[in-house]
Design a protein around this nucleic acid. Sequence first.
DNA 1: GCTCTTTCATAAAGATATTATATATAAAAA
DNA 2: TTTTTATATATAATATCTTTATGAAAGAGC
Lengths: 226, 226
Amino acid sequence: MAAKILIIEDEIAVREMLTFTLKNNGFETFEAGNSEEALNIVSKNNINLILLDWMLPGKAGIDIARSLRASIETKELPIIMLTAKSEESDKIMGLESGADDYITKPFSPKELMARIKALLRRSAPQTDMEVVIFGSINLNPMTHKVKDGDKNIILGPTEFNLLHFFMTHPERVYSRAQLLDFVWGTNVYVEERTVDVHILRLRKSLESETSKYIQTVRGAGYRLSK
Amino acid sequence: MAAKILIIEDEIAVREMLTFTLKNNGFETFEAGNSEEALNIVSKNNINLILLDWMLPGKAGIDIARSLRASIETKELPIIMLTAKSEESDKIMGLESGADDYITKPFSPKELMARIKALLRRSAPQTDMEVVIFGSINLNPMTHKVKDGDKNIILGPTEFNLLHFFMTHPERVYSRAQLLDFVWGTNVYVEERTVDVHILRLRKSLESETSKYIQTVRGAGYRLSK
DNA sequence: GCTCTTTCATAAAGATATTATATATAAAAA
DNA sequence: TTTTTATATATAATATCTTTATGAAAGAGC
């Protein structure tokens, strides 16, 4: 699922630009113009990362960073601060008060994305990295290993992703088109029949008993179910 | 029923190519060469998606997107913009002014189709996914599973659809012709007797007690009732 | 080179529509 | 009433059509 990013910025134009860039890159965005809004949004949503304008009126920026760092709940929340100029003192103060990274305006969307992704990668290992278990299947995204009972299962990348998706979304039927969207990703253009082939290979790789969990639902798609 | 797609493009050759490709893929197409035509067609027809050429004379492309986004009626209408080059600024402007996706020329018909289908899928309402219960029957459209009491009921696609229809429209009698319309879909020529056969199979699949809920109303049709 | 993915061709499985025939029902006639 | 008749529905069998499974080859990426 898409990471949730909160943009704290008082200038509407900049805020909109950021929102737009982030949405475009598949993130879910929230916007706040001041501390109050910001903390409110953080408390109500499961924000994954914050983009914080350092140049908020008063000392708002620094205050927000500090209060987030003070609370147990938000202690680990990654913060990227946006600074207008690359003044050494600002950087130092920013990092000191809790930002994990900073980026100076003007910056390219590309650079912003790279930093956000890097930070999310670093700080959010457990989002999609949980071990998943379904019946006798045990899938560990961290080590990229799959076991079916005692037996180690060797899967190609696509089979691995497919199984991971099914295991994190069991019981529900997905059409081939949906599987392409969710497992292959949007903007990938392959034939729907290709899904069949990967289902076949996934079934072959699993123990014969277990492979029955990968069910064909005629006219609808496939499902992981007992 | 086929989705309706409006092509807004001033170059006739490109327009015809697009129309051809789309028709070939089972879409219903409309064509407009300028804003006026475009907005006119949108207001009179139930357009499901728009292919908008970004390189229309003047700022026509951006203007059309904006006016569509401004009106409540067309706020949600998916727009794919066609751009000549993949310039960052163009993409951003396009998406900012309301396009949902963009595709840069030259593009393959396959890619175009995939994007259109993905967008239609995304914008389609996630309706009809509620679990339905009638008596001891429990039908879950999400998992595509049916239970009658404790027993799992295996149904073919048509029987599943038929039962789902009855369960979402209980107590009322439907003629064979109506069932063909609602369950099979309009524009399908099938003998009315065929309905009998599927009713038979549905009854057979259900527990004998429950199958009595599928009632024959002589001279009128069938009904789901206790 | 290798591995993994996608596509394609064909086989196999499954679902559907049609037909023929049997059965049920309602109304009319005896 | 009971019987007849006409018509509607149920059922089984089957031919046809669709969808899915599978193996093999081509293609892509490393």
